[in-house]
Amino acid sequence: MKNFAARVRRISATGPGVSTSGSAETRSGLPHRFEAVGEALASGSGLLDVCAVAGQDLARDGASMQEALDSLRDTAHRVAGGDPPFDAVSALLTAWGETTLGYLHQLSCDDPLTGLASQAHLRSRLSELHRLPPTEEAVARHALVVCALPFGDDPSEEPVDHFTRAMRLARAGEMARTVFPRDETVARVGMRRVAVLARRDDRLGRRVRVLRALLEGVEGRVGGPLVRVWIEGLPDSDPSTGMLLDELARG
């Protein structure tokens, strides 16, 4: 992350007076990563593909969005004598954004203490559901199974340290993976909850009962608070789903 966020690469400056042809002199004076873009502008073919490749490469280099835009504009002015077409700008920025977002998702995929998926990763998975067509059906076919462990409810207990809390969450997550062994996302949510993004099918209720029994067998205490496990439906809109996740994290 340090290399990605902190590395700033100054794109090479070029002098004025370059012709609008696709000559070797023109290509040699173009910004880094934009040689192929210049050739595509000169030939009039394949522009969107090479812009997408340039966007990906610049994101991996750590270049900012503004650097990418400035370089594309500079290339277009030098080769074609005007601003780049909208489709080229869109291809460049879409590729830059997707590559950057993919890199950030890799960094935030796992919670380092528990090994569970992070809350940020769960949030991105929920957003993906809202983008699937038709959105209403995709969202309705899924639900969150929430497990709330009884931390600090007994006044006689000493305060639970962060490491112990993380270990209890990790154990709860492993039990959840036992019950939901397919491609369900099992994530840490807040300080004391685990959430599973699961399919809402005819087996979901039975699985929730099994998970509750497993957790109570480990976490349950005579006369003490019980583990809470419940099914949480997903709201219709992505912003409302984000608010729901924030609320669960604060619980």
Rank of each mutant, 00 (worst) to 15 (best):
M1H: 09
N3V: 14
A5Q: 07
A6N: 14
V8P: 05
R9I: 13
G15T: 14
P16W: 12
T26H: 04
R27Y: 13
S28N: 14
G29I: 04
G29H: 04
E35D: 13
G38Y: 01
L41A: 07
L41V: 09
L41P: 02
A42C: 06
S43Y: 08
S43W: 04
S43G: 10
G44H: 08
S45V: 15
S45Q: 13
L47Q: 08
A52R: 07
V53T: 11
A54N: 03
G55E: 03
L58F: 02
A59M: 03
D61L: 11
D61W: 02
A63M: 07
A63Y: 00
A63K: 00
S64M: 01
S64I: 02
D70S: 08
D70M: 07
R73K: 11
H77K: 13
R78Y: 08
D83E: 15
D83F: 09
V89C: 05
A91E: 03
A91Q: 04
A95G: 05
E98H: 08
T99D: 06
T100W: 01
G102V: 04
Y103T: 12
L104S: 05
L104A: 12
H105G: 06
Q106T: 12
L107W: 09
L107H: 05
S108H: 13
C109N: 01
D110V: 13
D111P: 00
D111A: 02
P112F: 04
T114L: 04
G115E: 02
G115Q: 03
A120H: 04
H121C: 05
R123H: 06
R125Y: 01
L126W: 01
L126I: 11
E128M: 10
L129H: 03
R131K: 07
R131G: 06
P133S: 09
P134W: 00
T135E: 13
E136G: 13
R141K: 13
A143R: 04
V145Q: 01
V145Y: 00
P150E: 01
G152F: 02
D153Y: 09
D153V: 15
D153A: 12
E157A: 12
E158Q: 15
V160A: 05
H162A: 15
F163Q: 14
F163P: 08
F163E: 15
L169I: 09
A170S: 14
A172Q: 00
E174W: 09
M175Q: 11
M175G: 04
A176E: 01
T178F: 13
V179F: 05
R182I: 12
A187T: 06
V189N: 02
R193M: 12
R200D: 15
L204C: 11
R207V: 07
R212C: 11
L214E: 10
L215G: 01
E216M: 07
V218P: 02
V222D: 10
V222Y: 12
I231Q: 09
I231H: 02
G233F: 07
L234D: 01
D238P: 09
D238H: 14
D238Y: 11
P239L: 11
P239Q: 13
S240T: 11
L244T: 07
L244V: 10
D246S: 15
E247N: 11
L248Y: 03
L248K: 06
A249S: 14
A249F: 04
G251L: 14
G251C: 10
